[in-house]
């Protein structure tokens, strides 16, 4: 699957206004989202078939010619848990995570973080998804950021144990709070990032990130890709003067392990 993206940064005082504009364009009320993001790093180079499964596997063979020089690179994986769609519940979960953190302060941070989702977040309200994002395609071909991606929903079991079994280590945890809208096939997200034990956003200025994403089932299908680019640029034109949507920096979106 391919993902087409455009990004923009929004100062916090314009948040309400832009959210209203977006609600008008999408003709729907914004839906609050609250996500827990756990970033995992592969422990070592895959050794043979028993090692880490190649993350490119799910993407398809078409990835290989595209990034021949990257062959053998290791990528971060992200475990995303959508805690709840109501802000109230999300807040509650957050507090619980914090409590756990405080209680087990003496322990290794790694274990601490593993315990937190294990104890509280894997409750039935949390839907976990294992996300892989590739390095975006080199710029120039399209006026939008495009990258290969896969989302694997985890329907049962303990996702953390699974990651551990795949020899992945948890490196970073952050939370995402904001709103989501749908406009035709475009998923619009306006959000802020938080560290798990912080009450203020990760960005001290309190600015929001506007992300418009469109998924295309087959990245090799030129027609569909063009259609996706058309829809995104159309939205960009519509939002001209409100928010300037732009391509993200390719290297800032790099997901390779250094």
């Amino acid at each position: 699957m391919h993902e087409l993206l455009l990004h923009a940064v929004l100062p916090s005082h314009r948040h309400h206004q832009v959210l209203s504009v977006l609600a008008g364009i999408a003709a729907m009320q914004p839906i609050p989202i609250s996500e827990k993001n756990l970033v995992f790093k592969p422990q070592q180079q895959p050794a043979g078939p028993a090692g880490r499964p190649n993350p490119n596997q799910g993407v398809g063979a078409q990835m290989k010619p595209l990034q021949g020089q990257m062959h053998g690179d290791l990528f971060y994986l992200k475990l995303v848990g959508e805690t709840s769609e109501t802000g109230e519940k999300a807040g509650g979960t957050e507090v619980r995570v914090k409590e756990v953190d405080e209680k087990e302060e003496g322990k290794d941070r790694d274990v601490d973080m593993l315990d937190a989702p294990h104890g509280n977040d894997t409750s039935p309200t949390t839907d976990w998804t294992l996300q892989f994002r590739d390095l975006p395609d080199p710029p120039g071909r399209r006026p939008v950021t495009s990258r290969a991606m896969t989302d694997t929903p985890i329907t049962a079991g303990d996702p953390l144990k699974f990651m551990k079994a795949m020899e992945y280590t948890l490196t970073t945890t952050y939370h995402l709070h904001g709103h989501r809208l749908t406009h035709n096939a475009i998923d619009i997200r306006l959000y802020q990032l938080f560290l798990p034990d912080a009450q203020t956003p990760l960005d001290p200025s309190g600015s929001y990130v506007l992300q418009t994403a469109l998924r295309v089932a087959d990245g090799q299908n030129v027609e569909r890709m063009q259609e996706g680019v058309r829809q995104l640029t159309e939205l960009k034109e519509t939002l001209k003067g409100v928010v300037e949507l732009e391509m993200g920096d390719r290297l800032a979106l790099d997901t390779r392990v250094r």
Partner: peptide, 8 residues
């Protein structure tokens, strides 16, 4: 309003 499916 649901998250859109990928273009197909």
């Amino acid at each position: 309003s649901a998250p859109p499916p990928p273009l197909n």
